[in-house]
């Protein structure tokens, strides 16, 4: 059987190559391409092909099979890229074992997990952490203190380390993990509880808008803001946030439009001396 290496493996079958830790690490680094190839047709699809192309080359020694496998990954893909690495690892495991026979299952896995991963990743990783850490960092930064930014950076590096092991993790856990994960998903609502508590605090502390209006009756000046504070502290910030939330959810306003509206409103309110 000395010519085993020369004869092409049967069509669609994997070469029997055992994927190494190095292959997975390499694919994980290449997956940094993620959103960089973003386009309106296939979104992150090309990045998946880019990330997996070296390891797939080892799995499929036959050119035609390799092309087919790559084309499978060139297809539409879009989710939170840090968590996607876990799924790509699982895909490598499937293709290593079954070759092109796994192509449909690989697609199903990728498409099926896109929504849940984006949901968890976008809210938790891309919004909640930046909101909490960002507000701490920003508050200290405004006073010229870089410590908050430093703490956030340390967290970012820790997350980066985890990210760089995600593909390997997905490879080892395989599909089992994904099913376990979906079962546990409802419990992640607990993270929303933390998030909502913090956001409630943010409304009262981050939006520093006050009302500078004051009336004067002869010698007695009456300011509006202390009066408002007695009724409900942070009343104006709560009202602005509430209106923005209403416009976004009930009126389907786009965020960009809303930002522009706020800027114009701010110009008017500031010129009229209503808000400061």
């Amino acid at each position: 059987m000395e010519n085993e290496n020369i004869t092409a493996v049967a069509e669609g079958k994997p070469s029997g190559y055992k994927v190494t830790k190095k292959d997975l690490r390499n694919a994980n680094w290449r997956w940094l391409m993620s959103v960089c190839t973003f386009n309106y047709q296939t979104q992150q699809g090309a990045s998946v092909a880019y990330a997996l192309s070296p390891v797939l080359r080892k799995i499929y020694t036959n050119d035609e099979d390799y092309k087919q496998a790559l084309n499978n990954h060139f297809r539409y893909y879009n989710t939170q890229p840090w968590l996607a690495a876990i799924i790509l690892g699982a895909c490598v495991a499937m293709e290593e074992r079954d070759g092109l026979a796994a192509a449909d299952a690989v697609q199903d896995l990728k498409i099926g997990t896109m929504g849940p991963l984006a949901g968890v990743g976008d809210s938790l990783l891309m919004t909640m952490i930046p909101t909490i850490m960002g507000s701490i960092a920003a508050y200290m930064a405004i006073e010229g203190n870089p410590v908050g930014a430093g703490i956030w950076f340390a967290l970012i590096l820790a997350i980066f380390w985890v990210r760089m092991h995600a593909l390997e993790f997905g490879y080892k856990q395989g599909v089992k993990l994904v099913t376990d994960f979906s079962e546990k998903l409802p419990n992640l609502t607990a993270a929303s509880v933390l998030g909502l508590t913090v956001v409630g605090c943010l409304i009262a502390s981050v939006i520093g808008v006050t009302c500078p209006i004051s009336f004067s009756f002869g010698d007695v000046a009456m300011e509006i803001q202390p009066l408002l504070d007695k009724i409900l502290p942070a009343m104006i910030p709560a009202a602005i946030t509430g209106s923005a939330y209403y416009l976004l959810t009930k009126k389907n306003a786009s965020m960009t439009a809303l930002i522009l509206v706020v800027i114009v409103l701010a110009m008017v309110a500031s010129a009229a001396g209503i808000l400061a």
Partner: peptide, 10 residues
């Protein structure tokens, strides 16, 4: 005022 838009989005 803009943080209010971000928070509402969140």
């Amino acid at each position: 005022m803009l943080p209010a838009v971000g928070i509402a989005m969140l």
